[in-house]
């Protein structure tokens, strides 16, 4: 119930008691009512453009992608007919689909492990006070702030089959042989290395994000609360377990889920480095969906493959939503 309607309802009984006083409360009630409806009308009016945009260009396309997935739509032929779950069935029958699914999961898990290790250590370092902290923090987060399609190019050059600077160093140190020998790794051309090379770029790009999210979590714990716990006789581990952990957990969760969504659905790293090759060794679901949907023009099957990401993303989204609501209240 809004405050205005409470106030509007209040004077009513007194209004019935005396004829003379009717005019004022009635008018004020009407005024309050019209003010409420005016406020709501104004609110919805302000909300409308954003809501419409999102409904028309996110909501409707999402529903449309469900429709595409059960149709035989393709680029050349705009008249699509309903073919049921045929696209999903044929996707499940493609070997490359299973390879891509497996690679997507490996990508997500391996990258998550490395970025949490790197992110946590970096966060603990940045938690300290030292001269030049701002500058160092600014430098360390550059990978995350650089547009992804642009930084991938630097890596493509660093992974070059012949002039790789990584190999130059490894070769000088003596870990690998000369160019042309078997021990010279061709990062993007070797089926055993290609996916790892792509994962490394993702880790490089997102470990600063993990660190900053962790830092935000740590700094959200008020010092007074920690001091109070200390005064009450909590040990360091008790403080961590019962005070710090519950307070930073929601923030960590949200950062983690964000990262999951963006890592799972990002195609730019793999697409620009290897296009999913060699021989599908680094193919992940988004790249497959793009290649089938746009390059091969099979919109229906492409949409179906992209939708296979939904069951992977749905738990993340759900947890995210729950966390967010818990934080609000």
């Amino acid at each position: 119930m809004t405050p205005a309607s409470l106030q509007g309802g209040g004077p009513e009984p007194t209004a019935r008691a005396a004829v003379v006083s009717v005019a004022v409360p009635l008018r004020s009630r009407l005024m309050f009512q019209s003010q409420t409806s005016r406020r709501l009308a104004f609110g919805y009016l302000l909300l409308a453009p954003a809501a419409l945009y999102v409904l028309l260009l996110v909501g409707a396309p999402f529903v449309f992608s469900l429709y595409l997935a059960v149709s035989d739509a393709n680029v050349g032929d705009p008249v699509a007919t309903f073919i049921g779950l045929e696209n999903f069935r044929s996707a499940l029958e493609m070997d490359v689909f299973w390879i891509a699914l497996q690679n997507s999961v490996i990508f997500l898990v391996v990258a998550a492990i490395f970025k949490s290790i790197l992110g946590t250590s970096l966060a603990f370092l940045l938690l300290q006070d030292f001269p030049g902290k701002k500058l160092i923090r600014g430098l360390v987060v550059i990978p995350f702030t650089l547009p992804i399609a642009i930084s991938v190019l630097a890596w493509k050059w660093m992974y070059d089959s012949q002039f790789s600077v990584i190999n130059w160093v490894l070769s000088r140190v003596g870990l690998i042989g000369q160019y042309g020998t078997d021990s010279w790794p061709i990062w993007l051309g070797d089926p055993k290395l290609a996916l790892l090379a792509c994962i490394a770029v993702n880790v490089w790009r997102t470990f600063p994000f993990s660190a900053i999210v962790l830092l935000a979590g740590f700094t959200s714990v008020p010092l007074e609360v920690l001091d109070a716990a200390k005064v009450d006789g909590c040990s360091f581990f008790q403080r961590f377990r019962h005070v710090v952990a519950p307070m930073i957990f929601p923030i960590l969760m949200i950062g983690f889920l964000f990262d999951t969504v963006f890592t799972l659905s990002d195609l730019s790293v793999v697409y620009l480095l290897t296009q999913g090759g060699p021989a599908n060794a680094s193919k992940i679901l988004p790249v497959l969906a793009y290649q089938i949907g746009i390059q091969a023009g099979n919109l229906g099957r492409g949409a179906a493959i992209a939708l296979f990401l939904v069951p992977l993303l749905a738990p993340a989204m759900f947890l995210f939503l729950r966390n967010l609501k818990r934080r609000e209240y």
Binding site: G43, V58, F62, S65, V261, I294, A303, L324, K325
Partner: peptide, 30 residues
């Protein structure tokens, strides 16, 4: 403006930020 369910509307709008482009790009191409 104390709209009814403002908090939920806000969260739903924000959730759409998490719908990845890879799911939307085919229908959006249409």
């Amino acid at each position: 403006l104390r709209l009814p369910a403002a908090e939920n509307i806000g969260i739903s709008v924000f959730m759409t930020y998490l719908v990845p482009p890879i799911i939307l790009f085919l229908p959006l191409s249409r």
